[in-house]
Amino acid sequence: MDTIDPTPLLPRDDAHDPARRKALSCLAAWTGAAVVWSVAGGVPRALGATTDGKPPAAAKNALTFVQISDTHFGFNKPANPDIVGSYRRAVADIHALPQAPAFIVHTGDISHLSRPDEFGQARELFQELKVDRLHTVPGEHDTIDDGLSGYLKFFDHDGKGKGWYSFDQGGVHFIGLTNTLNFKMGTMTSLGDEQLAWLKTDLAHVSHSTPIVLLAHIPMWTVWEPWGWGTADADQAMALLRPFGSVTVLNGHIHQVLQKVEGNVALHTAMSLAYPLPTPGQEGVGEPGPLKVPAGELGKRLGIRQLSVVRGKRELALIDRPLER
């Protein structure tokens, strides 16, 4: 499991590197609190914000939204025998936020096996969310059997029959991508040429000063290649995004919070609402299967994320909120 050199996300041992200090203070600003870092498998990991449990109220002119991910409806194994219960705790947390979110984004793996009954259950459960809209992107669990067609029967947001789309809200350009269709033997997933061409066309109409928030299920950087935790042609998408002043990429898939900063592009993975996964290449684990954690620990490994975009500020305020704090 050590055949690749994991991309160093931030320098590991360089306390005197001004670039690292800048990145860390930047991340601290997003979470509104100090960030505790550890390095696992070559990937620095934010262990969580040391807030007092109360999310700071967002500025009045902010656009606030919530990210949920990896609900895996249909999963019923010991790692979490009650995923619907976990989801409903998250719903209660979302409804208790001091500022109601404008909408919710779901970064994929809505279902566990891409079966119609699972998508149907998901759609019913999503109706419990008191928000105007839910924007989703598919995970690889949503596209196992029939590609996008099963997923799109329930979640075709713009009626165009594609998994990718964009919309504008609160001065932000949002993009949803699909990176779970082009699996080839022995490689990581990819976006594919058709989608990259669409992304180029879509971005051509957006001014470089417009903040961009991009949703995709699998991380848009190589977190851990032996487990397929990355997108083979993400660099081509990043090249299209680089000219923009503020780009935030929200991913799921790996069921844990990781962050990476590349110039004006900040990439974040999110916690799952179903079960935890090992850290990238975690010693003694060997494969990215569900982790069974001691009773009482599970709620600390699952959670939601609240994000706020303030006009005129480049970074998004971002708070990860475990179900149990």
């Binding site: 699996f183 022995g186 487990w227």
Partner: peptide, 12 residues
């Protein structure tokens, strides 16, 4: 006959 897991293409 080479085959893979389409969910985890590193499985061959």
């Amino acid at each position: 006959y080479a085959y893979l897991c389409t969910v985890h293409p590193f499985m061959t």
